[in-house]
Nucleic acid binder design. Structure first.
Lengths: 193, 193
DNA sequence: ATTCAATCTTTACGGTGTCAAGTTTAAATT
DNA sequence: AATTTAAACTTGACACCGTAAAGATTGAAT
């Protein structure tokens, strides 16, 4: 009566178990064998769903990123947000706070694989790192709304400044005694002049 | 005739070998046993000099950070630098370029241990992350030179803005298509208004 | 009823960090 | 100069890891 066969949804169970382990004991504590054990399954079972450990980690990153994205969307659609400029301000703050509240996520999400980004503002690259894409779209909207005429190069620099600032400050947001959102609030206003 | 005993300077040899492996094949390729083998020594020999692997990695980080620091000092002492403000601009650019040229170093240096920093501008914390300390000192000098009277809180925010910007932008400096020094040059001028 | 492909188990291999016990050596002590 | 000592190294062992191969189990398709 081996009812361990055909778990039902092992793939997702592995992802959930992986997230739990990372949250409780850090990324280093995560091993394929522990994740498998947490799901009550043999140590080689994950190989039916993921070709290797890195692939499981990628799947975990994907779901974490999705959670992150939905937080950003909530911020951008907040009731107090009246235009693209305010949406960007709100997103940025939420962005930085996310990594302040989960300092380990920054390295976990980025330390192996750099996010793909294209700073060319005239085109959309749907495979780009989704939070970056969100900034890019709102910034384009802001440029339209503001009515200021900018060259392609100027727009690109504007994007690097605002998103680079957010992503950059996020990397220090988890440090003790560092209030990264202050920098954001002050500098972002100068970015979006 | 075992002339492997008393290597002479195994501690430093291990550090050098470790740096070489990291530069050639990345941090993941570094194992205590490989480092030991590269020094022609048995797999447990490192334990005479380091209590564990993490400790060897810390020593490696220390020497890398020292190289980094001396680059910053060279920038700050450049012949074209006439005052503290220009020193900060030059340091920042070199700072970001260092991580653009060695993208893997950013995660290697920071992904386990966050650098210690104290943003209180009135005191010196000699154990703080050295590159941060350097910024802090030059910024204090800049505040003196500029003659502007600022409150303690305003000075602190100024520090978070400038160093946070540099350290932050460094985290994205290694990405394709991202010119982080542009952001630095534009934003730093607004920081040091 | 049989086949089949997906899912999971078992076993095995080489690599890893770390520990314990033994060996070698240079330098300190007598 | 002989002996002791402590540091620097070797050897061997252990548990854990990622991964591969081969076999067992199962629900669904034929």
């Amino acid at each position: 009566m081996k009812d361990n066969y055909h778990h039902g949804d092992l793939r997702n169970a592995l992802i959930e178990a992986g997230i739990k382990i990372i949250n409780e004991n850090g990324e280093d504590a995560l091993s394929l064998r522990k994740v498998a054990a947490a799901c009550g399954v043999s140590h080689a079972a994950p190989y039916a769903h993921f070709p290797d450990k890195e692939s499981l980690l990628s799947a975990i990153k994907e779901t974490v990123t999705n959670d992150f994205l939905s937080e950003l969307e909530k911020a951008a659609n907040g009731s107090k947000v009246k235009n693209a400029q305010e949406a960007i301000m709100a997103m940025g703050e939420r962005y930085i706070l996310f990594f302040r509240n989960n300092p380990d996520y920054f390295n976990f999400l980025f330390h192996k694989q750099k996010p793909e980004v294209h700073t060319d503002m005239s085109k959309d690259y749907p495979n780009d790192y989704a939070p970056f894409l969100m900034f890019k779209r709102y910034l384009n909207k802001y440029f339209e709304e503001s009515g200021i005429r900018l060259s392609a190069k100027e727009k690109e620099i504007g994007l690097i400044k605002t998103w680079g600032l957010v992503q950059g400050l996020s990397s220090i947001a988890g440090m003790e005694n560092v209030n990264a959102t202050i920098s954001w609030k002050v500098l972002a206003k100068e970015c979006l002049k």
